[in-house]
């Protein structure tokens, strides 16, 4: 049973890791947790669903278009919701992201819900499993795993090697200092919300062939990804990926060896245990640093 649990845990872990990467990206730049991130994932999946099922576009084209639409949704959300609150207290921003999540969920239900159906899109590759040491693995699972690692490497390089990445980090560490050297902090935030949403959209398009999608998937996924970022260390890109895989594996192993009901509460247990025993997480460096 162990190989199956590990395979399943790594795949769901890759999903959590990708969603967590988006959360970390926004947190690193703006210093805020985006509680509407799960709903951005949900809409990204529905964008792809409509582009493939109704517009008849090939999967790869739909992926790119869904990512672009998700990016635009992130930019619009910044201009309509977050930028007006740019100087508001942190708690106001938390409430704004929570409120926006409900708006997005409503949009999802209006256009793609209402029938109690779970929707899916065809896999990008042959859905027949391949066997590695007698363990059946879906090719789409490997794609998701590869994509999660690729995203982590890409963003790590982005933050450490590019001027844009350093500007985002500087803005996160001290927005006032960033203003004073001439950084247009508002524009950095706009790009960050956009890219964060695009990552959520990409994760959704990659995962939807494996997991069904519903308008209510966002909140559940957010908790799992949040547990991943807490475990990995809030603000750490490496931590988001390691935490994502860890939460996925913990869920599956606890479900398989102890009780299936643990699958649903494993993420909450992870959050509680980490916050009590290691609040900074495994790789946390950003937690208490924002000036």
């Amino acid at each position: 049973m162990l190989p199956f649990l590990l395979t399943s845990g790594l795949t769901t872990g890759a999903l959590y890791a990708m969603v967590a990467i988006g959360l970390v990206l926004v947190y690193r730049s703006t210093g805020h947790i985006n509680f509407s991130h799960g709903e951005l994932f949900m809409l990204g999946g529905f964008f792809a669903y409509s582009l493939i099922m109704f517009a008849g576009l090939p999967y790869v084209v739909a992926l790119f278009l869904a990512v672009i639409l998700s990016f635009l949704l992130g930019v619009i959300s910044d201009r309509l919701v977050y930028r007006p609150l740019i100087k508001a207290p942190g708690l106001t921003m938390v409430l704004a992201t929570v409120g926006f999540s409900y708006l997005l969920k409503g949009i999802g239900r209006y256009f793609w819900g209402g029938k109690g159906e779970y929707l899916s899109i065809p896999a990008i590759v042959d859905p027949a499993p391949i066997f590695i040491n007698d363990i059946p693995i879906l090719p789409q699972q490997l794609i998701v795993l590869g994509a999660a690692v690729a995203f982590m490497v890409a963003f790590a390089l982005f933050f450490s090697r590019t001027k844009a990445g350093k500007i985002m980090q500087a803005t996160s560490e001290n927005p006032t200092a960033s203003y004073l050297v001439g950084i247009r902090v508002e524009n950095v935030y706009t790009w960050t919300w956009g890219v964060g949403a695009a990552v959520a959209g990409a994760a959704a398009v990659l995962m939807t062939p494996l997991t069904l999608i519903t308008p209510d998937i966002g909140a559940t996924l957010l908790i799992k990804a949040f547990a991943a970022t807490i475990l990995g260390g809030l603000g750490s890109m490496t931590g988001a990926v390691v935490g994502g895989f860890a939460v996925g594996l913990i869920e599956q192993l606890a479900s398989g060896y102890i009780d299936t009901s643990l699958q649903e509460i494993a993420a909450f247990l992870v959050i509680m245990v980490v916050l009590v025993f290691r609040p900074a997480g495994l790789f946390g460096v950003y937690g208490q640093r924002r000036a």
Binding site: K166, Q169, A170, E173, N174, T176, A177, L180, R289
Partner: peptide, 11 residues
């Protein structure tokens, strides 16, 4: 040059 320096500590 702001009071309190405001360097970016992680960079």
């Amino acid at each position: 040059v702001p009071q309190g320096r405001f360097v970016w500590p992680g960079m």
